[in-house]
Amino acid sequence: MDMHVTALSQNIARVVLAGRLDAAGAAAFDLPFSAVAGSNRHVLVDLSAVNFVSSIGIRTLVLGAKTIQRRGGKLLLLSPSSEVEQVLQTIGVTDLLPIVRDEAEAIAAFDG
């Protein structure tokens, strides 16, 4: 699991993840992602290069989204694969972690 963070705008951090967000990957991803969630108003998590996600990885995303929401921000997921999206839908978190298809849609959702 690789993670890097860029600024999409002054208020929006873009977190690009790549690889498997599984138990082994989440062990390395948990702390740095929590730090990003605790220090940015909005966070866009780019999942386009994530080829697997388990419940442990989704837990980290949900806890991050809770942290961000408490400070009035939002967490959105960008372009998960169809398989990853099926996992998110199966456990019913797509209302809590909304999915967007491109950056323009993300920026509009953050502003809304």
Binding site: S55, R59, V62
Partner: peptide, 24 residues
């Protein structure tokens, strides 16, 4: 099956693994 939370505030991660096994 776990109760699906309506809001992020209510969301308590857990019970998802068994739900995924049942589905996949």
């Amino acid at each position: 099956p776990p109760v699906r939370p309506a809001t992020l505030e209510d969301a308590v991660p857990g019970g998802w693994g068994i739900q995924l096994i049942r589905s996949f």
